[in-house]
Design a protein around this nucleic acid. Structure first.
Length: 573
DNA sequence: GCCGTTTTCGGCCCGACTGTTTTCAGTCG
């Protein structure tokens, strides 16, 4: 039984909540939260690392004390300090912190004075108008709580980035359409291209007296104005998404953009560097005493603390500040570096478009090559190809390449099922005729960790396995992915020269950002592929590139930045 | 509880908005 990083992070996070309600030292609480964040963002299994006797205190925000606690959790599954806290306070009290407007102080008051232990107790107390009697609360807060509790459906779900884009587009358009509005920029995790977005942070610069706030709070899709001031407003959209708007003067645009892009931990780290230089950095600029010394651009903010510009995708306080100080920031891959797509389907299996349509669409995007990777026979629901149909498709691709006359090269390929025992779903004599094999797991997702790992390792042993597709098998918000020792798979892939895929489907993004970073560390090559099931899906490439950038990858780390000849040479190895 | 170009102690980012107050605490980002 391996303890997941996620479970360790949750225990620290829960402990932080309970300690905060108890009124513990705020910095101690923050230390637990930062540690939880570090752990949640790791791809390598801490349980494996701990078992191997590695020094966990080398990790950011993990010191001796927390390293010891991690070891305890890995060995026993429990954190004694959390269990002790749960004896002092009801464990469900931390649920109350999820309600916006309730922080640690008010939750403590609710518990101590009204004996509220959980959300149910709170509902009852609100219904009986007992909350308004409490010092610090009033009729208005009680009513606000009543409204929020009535709509409460658990912690707000984060939206996949692509859905956030669709919601943001018309809103941004509406704001830009207003006279006097200069810049409208979406910052926050959206700009950092995080795979999911919890809210939208919109930054606006405008001429004085422009009615931006009115336009914003009056937007059609707004279901509730949460707060509204001179320079800042928060609304909820009907889609359930929270949107914050910040109005700043043009001279502060860079400082505001930096502040509003976050991540919070990155901002704190940058501001700390400012403090060391006797500078104050806030959303209005960089200040030396009362004198404003920068802030029109983000570059000025970084200049002030002697750092090179740090790309938004890297701003997570995951070592980018240190890397910037040591001048070893990666030159991140860009969409323009991509020369072709190595995973796409046609009507032959479960795609919507023909071979020719897919090839034409890829050529229009300026690609040098497109691998057609229809499913193999085991995936019957997707009408997977058996040896005969595969042979027919190989011939069809050869014929099409002749007709295309070098405009683009279609690669003969397959998305080949890895069977439960790790064998491959088509015989060698068929596979030998292909340019490329993309191997993937589509069934028996519930094998135990060791079996699943060995299954994939066996598949990697085949000389035909060029790329391991969607290695974790997760679906964002739906499925966690199968149990797997990914680090072991990566080491094996590195040895065999097999690439791992970043599947760019917005609901997969698999590998994810931190997996990419681990892959790079271990010397694993990456393929960024769309897994397109239609021509339009080829545009998902940018979502894959986003995650690769978040994972510190350069063009050199990614095989489909190579030209056709280099790629083919690489695949032959 | 972490961490170090003020290093093993004593710091730890900074400001807007709301509601309940009567000058500010709490919450949020």
């Amino acid at each position: 039984m391996t303890v997941h990083n996620r479970e360790i992070a949750e225990q620290f996070s829960h402990l932080a909540d309970l300690l905060e309600i108890e009124g513990a030292d705020a910095y101690r609480v923050r230390a637990y939260r930062q540690a939880a964040q570090t752990i949640a963002g790791l791809s390598e299994s801490l349980a494996d690392r701990a078992a191997a006797g590695e020094d966990l205190s080398a990790l950011p925000h993990i010191g001796e004390s927390l390293a010891e606690k991690i070891r305890t959790i890995c060995e026993t599954g429990h954190l004694p300090q959390l269990e002790e806290a749960e004896e002092r306070l009801p464990a469900a009290l931390s649920d109350l912190l999820e309600i916006s407007g309730l922080g640690p102080k008010r939750v403590k008051a609710l518990h101590q004075d009204l004996h509220i232990d959980n959300l149910q107790d709170l509902k009852q107390a609100v219904a009986e108008h007992r909350v308004r009697e409490l010092s610090g609360f009033g009729a208005k807060s009680e009513q606000a709580l009543a409204d929020k509790l009535a709509q409460w459906q658990g912690p707000a779900e984060r939206l996949p980035l692509i859905e956030a884009e669709e919601i943001a587009r018309p809103l941004v358009h509406s704001l830009r359409g207003l006279d006097g509005v200069d810049q409208v920029t979406i910052a926050g995790s959206f700009r950092r291209r995080k795979e999911t977005v919890g809210d939208l942070d919109i930054l606006v610069t405008a001429a004085e007296g422009t009615s931006v706030m009115e336009r914003f709070t009056g937007y059609d899709e707004v279901s509730e104005v949460v707060s509204q001031g001179e320079t800042r407003a928060t609304v909820l959209l009907r889609a359930g998404l929270q949107v914050d708007l910040r109005l700043v003067p043009a001279a502060a645009y860079g400082a505001a953009l930096h502040y509003f892009t976050g991540a919070k931990a990155h901002n704190i780290a940058v501001r700390r560097l400012g403090v060391q230089r006797d500078l104050k950095i806030n959303e209005y600029g960089v200040f030396h005493g009362d004198e404003r010394v920068g802030g029109r651009t983000e570059q000025e903010v970084y200049d002030a603390v002697d750092l090179p510009f740090i790309e938004p995708e890297l701003r997570e306080d995951r070592g980018e500040i240190e890397a910037a100080q040591e001048d070893r920031l990666p030159a991140l891959i860009g969409l323009d570096d991509i020369r072709g797509d190595l995973h796409a389907h046609t009507k032959a299996s479960d795609g919507h478009d023909s071979l020719r349509q897919m090839a034409e669409a890829a050529a229009e995007r300026g690609y040098a090559y497109l691998a057609i990777t229809d499913h193999s026979q085991h995936v019957t629901v997707a009408h997977g190809l058996d040896p005969q149909r595969m042979a027919a498709q190989i011939d069809a691709v050869d014929a099409l390449n002749e007709e295309l006359d070098g405009r683009i090269r279609v690669l003969k390929a397959v998305e080949l099922d890895i069977l439960a025992d790790g064998s491959l779903d088509l015989p060698d004599d068929v596979l030998e005729r292909l340019d490329l094999c993309v191997c993937a797991v589509h069934h028996k997702l519930d094998l135990p960790r060791q079996k699943q790992t060995e299954r994939i390792l066996r598949a990697l042993d085949s000389q035909h396995c060029h790329i391991l597709a969607h290695p974790r098998g997760r679906l964002i918000g739906k499925r966690a992915g199968y149990e797997l020792d990914l680090e072991r798979v990566m080491r094996a892939a590195a040895e065999r020269g097999c690439a791992l895929e970043v599947n760019a489907q917005p609901k997969r993004l698999d590998l994810d950002d931190s997996d990419c970073r681990l892959a790079k560390e271990l010397g694993v090559r990456i393929a960024i592929s769309t897994d397109a099931h239609s021509q339009g899906n080829l545009d998902y490439m940018r979502f894959g590139v986003d995650q690769a950038r978040r994972g510190w990858l350069t063009a050199d780390d990614v095989i489909n930045t190579r030209g056709l000849d280099d790629l083919l040479a690489l695949l032959r190895h």
